[in-house]
Design a protein around this nucleic acid. Structure first.
Lengths: 342, 342
DNA sequence: CGTTAGCACTCGACGTGTATGAGTGCTAAC
DNA sequence: GTTAGCACTCATACACGTCGAGTGCTAACG
């Protein structure tokens, strides 16, 4: 059976209503809606068909119908009607971002806040993959005998630091000049290409071989680790508790546990290169704890190559319209603000 | 009425039991306990006295008794019997800490993890006040025309960075040598004393007055702000949801909201200079949302003057014994690990 | 032939009534 | 001073009946 015009209309009405109320919706409710000129009985027949086709579920015999994941999929793919943000809203969001633009990390943090406030769901922002960032500056700072702090400033202004051991006998001035050389040689190289740059350096400078080797090791370890906890920012983690689907503490807990594991989040919110908004519904997330959550993601740019992810996680019955427009706007806004660091 | 020996014994038994079960405890339960050789009737008489004295509450006529906040206060002040951690446990905790000792921030982060795992409550660690840290290194890195990133490395290895505007015409080399001077002049000064050091500098170097002024402003703004979100680390925020007092979603939510506000946490976990473990019970926290939470804090050292706070937040009926010993141990362990950065 | 009114049926939500049991306070006996 | 006994209280659990929202089916209607 193919879905005809009327079935689309009814299905859309059901989803719209369910998104709003979280209550199973009955035939009378739909019938009363403006735009649907049929009696409850007719609607019932159509609903029965839609259920057979897998677009609706019935919690129990005498309850209304609830959209299935298949229905949401159809909804976001075909039925969605783009909604506009008011220019007032856009302005407000943009202002929030710019107010904090002194530091990259705080921009991202406030972006997470804006996202979760605007949508009332939970927002997640993942910083760009370290490997794609370009080195701008390298600095070795002595902290103790034979120990130094290596600081790497990237084109995103993001500062990465790590403690490394250094050969004996190097004083602050030595480290200073080594830093200078390192910066000169490595500037504008992406972090992931740093191995090659280093091996060239190693050939040249015999006496600092050990120091450089250690530095390289540290950088590579960081790249492998795929970033630390501060690379994943979560906003509005308690927002979801407002919704009836989380009135059960156990559900709430399993959801919140997911938010605690930054590694899981990083995987969940990784994307291919495209800039388009992407939506994963319920089980499409491959994580039992998120079986009735949807994840909507978009990308933001930082520099020429590197992109990070910003996204929303909410109940499957989320207001996709709103979320998509907010993400779409914020993806641009965030890219714009961050490009000023270039 | 004064509390005699027996009342102490009974009160302690009640608290111990309630901490374990979270259920109002009746006279029979106490009577059965080894160590208390009285019949339920006798216990009842004593309980009645204890209630009148304000140490016990009765949820309703035919329920058992529940310890009041006054009882907990007495408990932690007098009744507590120090418990020892097994050396096995100590070792495990210590190892966890050391495993991550490459970066200060990750040490603190993993300390929060260890604390919440060991206690099954929520842990909070507050980094030392910025003002008490000493400057080790200052570095200006060019990021764009007239813009530079100022990086300050402190004795904790903690890196603070901020974008500042610089006068026109300064190239990378200029910034390099300015950094060198700044580092030389400011090294070993505490951040809070930096204003004075700067004004001396300002008198000397006429041509960079503007740059230095901006840098000083940025530093002071940071000091005022009292640190950013990354200075407060929370571990095991969902742990408390395991306990029956949070089976109500609204309670859970209001608790979790507190954890989201880093400013509130910073205030809640600030301490005077002492290194002793301190306990605040229920309303002593001055925050309605935490009326049935207790907060236990200790200090850790970082360098000669500066201290940070580590603490646990849990239900008022928390296992104070265990929490105190864990905090006591971790306060030392953390100080030790961090002192290696000095 | 599609649409709709009518009707019997289902099932969760809610309120009421009753039994149960844990726990208390009091009194009298030990 | 301690304890056994007993009447009393009250939350909890369970059974039962009512109510109402919603369904599926059938027959009538245009």
């Amino acid at each position: 059976m193919q879905l005809d015009e009327r079935k689309y209309l009814i299905l859309q009405a059901i989803i719209d209503d369910y998104i709003l109320t979280a209550m199973p919706v009955g035939s009378r409710t739909i019938s009363r809606k403006s735009g649907v000129g049929f009696s409850p009985a007719t609607i019932r027949n159509e609903m029965s068909d839609l259920e057979e086709l897998g677009y609706l579920d019935q919690p129990h015999t005498s309850a209304g119908r609830v959209p299935s994941n298949k229905a949401y999929r159809l909804y976001v793919d075909h039925l969605i009607k783009g909604s506009k943000l008011t220019s007032d809203e856009r302005e407000r969001m943009h202002d929030h971002l710019v107010a904090r633009s002194k530091q990259v990390e705080s921009v991202i943090r406030s972006a997470a806040g804006v996202l979760s406030d605007a949508t009332k769901y939970t927002s997640v922002i993942v910083a760009p993959k370290l490997g794609t960032l370009r080195i701008r500056h390298v600095q070795l700072v002595p902290v103790a005998e034979r120990t130094a702090l290596m600081i790497i400033v990237t084109n995103a202004g993001i500062v990465k630091d790590a403690v490394i051991r250094v050969p004996e006998g190097l004083d602050a001035d030595d480290l200073y000049s080594i830093s200078r050389v390192l910066t000169q040689k490595l500037a504008d190289k992406p972090l992931e290409g740093v191995r090659q740059a280093f091996s060239e350096l190693l050939r040249g400078a015999e006496q600092n071989r050990k120091l450089l080797g250690e530095a390289l090791q540290v950088i590579e370890k960081r790249l492998e680790a795929g970033g630390d906890a501060s690379d994943v920012i979560v906003g509005g983690s308690t927002n979801l508790l407002e919704y009836p689907e989380y009135s059960d503490v156990n559900k709430a807990r399993s959801f919140l546990s997911v938010l605690e594991s930054k590694d899981t989040l990083r995987k969940l919110f990784s994307r291919d290169g495209s800039m388009e908004v992407s939506i994963r519904i319920g089980p499409e997330n491959q994580l039992p704890a998120l079986n009735d959550c949807s994840i909507v993601t978009a990308s933001y740019r930082l520099g020429d190559r590197s992109t990070g992810t910003l996204g929303i996680i909410g109940p499957t019955r989320m207001n996709y319209n709103r979320v998509i427009s907010v993400l779409d706007f914020m993806s641009r806004a965030l890219s714009d603000v961050l490009s000023e660091y270039q």
